[in-house]
Computed example of a mutant assay.
Amino acid sequence: MRIGVIGAGAVGGTFAGLLAAAGHDVEVAARGAQLDAIRAGGLHLDGGWGEHTAAVQANPTLTVRPELAILATKAQDAATALAANATRLEGVPLLVVQNGLGGLRVAHEELPDSPLLGCLALFAASYLEPGHVTVTGANPVVIGEGPGADRALLERVGALVGEALPVELTDDLVGAQWTKLLINHVNALPAITGLSVQEVVADRRLRRILSASMRETVRVARRIGVRFGKVQGVSGRVLDLLGVLPLALGEQFPRLLARRMGAVPNPGSTLQSIRRGQLTEIEFLNGAVVDAATEHGLSAPVNAAIVALVHEVEGTREFLGVDQVAARVPV
């Protein structure tokens, strides 16, 4: 099948490399050094799903109309990327693979005639140098229906992607998105401190801040009527407990997430953006919690403080120490 992947970073590169290895005709839309490296030597993928060098086509925008498109840019870049590729995507099924909330809404606004599916990438991958992506956690993806899609399309795309990597289908995409949003809270503190996720969780004060941001998120979600979906063995019932347990007990959840990542230091996607000198998607992660709280007359001071600190590091390119972070996040 002809597959177009828009965004060839850690997540998009993983999809592109594995789908090409499964025998599909893959073209990626990439930029800058990543585009140059893929054109020169292919896309090299290693780690959890083996080692592959995929000879994918690479261009600034898609040059051929695909039979399936995959959007894997950062959330803040989605609208621009879709607009740039719109002539090739009208009516084409689009799999939206993004962190946070709002990705399907943005895609529907840009491509109202395309059937959309939402995808949560639970695997961990790092794009640390052009043309090279390393999978550090070989976990499945979760796919659910979005605007214009039906169960038949969901099952067809699920089967196709399942040829390349593990897939789970969900009937409650919104609940699954909120669960993934909560898991993605592990990204912010590495971006602020320059530490890996495992190092953040190992530090007593940072782990407490992370747990507090998760507890606050659960409380906001429950107040606005969100029911957390089961993702990667994490059930809504477990997450509901985070909203009522003391922080000392709630800290077991980030410990579990860190253990699942294994021993290879995981920088998290937000820190990877900082290191590349790019703006982060923090407004679609912890910032989405702040926005949801504000919309319903609630507050989320822990998440708001974390968002502000990430933006500060974006501007200064200087990481903060644990003492600085602990003094500025209200836990």
Rank of each mutant, 00 (worst) to 15 (best):
I224G: 00
V307C: 11
T294W: 10
V244Q: 01
S211V: 14
L111D: 07
A152Q: 15
V313Y: 00
G91Y: 11
D113H: 14
G12K: 08
G162T: 11
A159N: 13
P115S: 09
G243W: 03
V238T: 15
G23A: 09
G250Q: 05
L320M: 14
V161W: 02
V264N: 09
A159L: 14
G236M: 00
H185G: 12
G287A: 02
V161A: 01
I183G: 03
R227V: 14
A40R: 13
V310A: 02
D25R: 08
K74C: 09
V325Y: 06
L120G: 04
L206G: 07
R328F: 02
R105Q: 13
A86C: 09
A292D: 08
N303E: 07
A138T: 01
G225S: 08
R227L: 13
G148N: 05
L82A: 01
T136V: 14
T63S: 12
W49I: 01
L320A: 08
A124C: 13
V218R: 08
A33C: 05
P66H: 06
E163S: 09
Q177T: 02
E295T: 14
E27Y: 10
E168A: 13
E216T: 07
G321L: 08
D46V: 12
G250F: 11
R207Y: 06
L89C: 02
P190W: 00
D203T: 13
V307D: 11
G315K: 08
N99Q: 10
M214K: 09
G158C: 01
T53R: 14
M261K: 10
A304Y: 00
D113V: 08
T280M: 00
F15V: 00
V26L: 03
Q252K: 14
P115F: 10
A33I: 00
N303F: 08
M1K: 12
L247D: 10
R223A: 15
L279S: 15
L160A: 05
A327E: 15
V290C: 02
A124V: 05
P93D: 00
V200H: 00
G12Q: 06
G41K: 04
C119T: 04
G277Q: 07
N99F: 11
E163C: 05
V322D: 03
L117D: 00
V290M: 11
R215V: 10
L247G: 09
R31Y: 01
L181C: 05
V322E: 05
P112W: 09
R260W: 14
T316A: 07
L62M: 10
R276W: 08
R275L: 15
V97I: 07
L239R: 04
F253V: 04
K74A: 06
N139T: 11
G315D: 13
K230R: 15
T14P: 10
A288C: 06
T294E: 15
N184Y: 06
K180I: 00
V290P: 04
A10W: 10
R223I: 03
A176W: 03
Q278S: 10
A79C: 03
P254V: 07
S299G: 12
I306Y: 09
R237M: 14
L95S: 08
S235P: 07
R2D: 14
R2T: 13
G250M: 04
N266T: 13
L89Q: 04
L181G: 05
R227T: 15
T14I: 11
V322Y: 03
A30F: 10
A72Y: 01
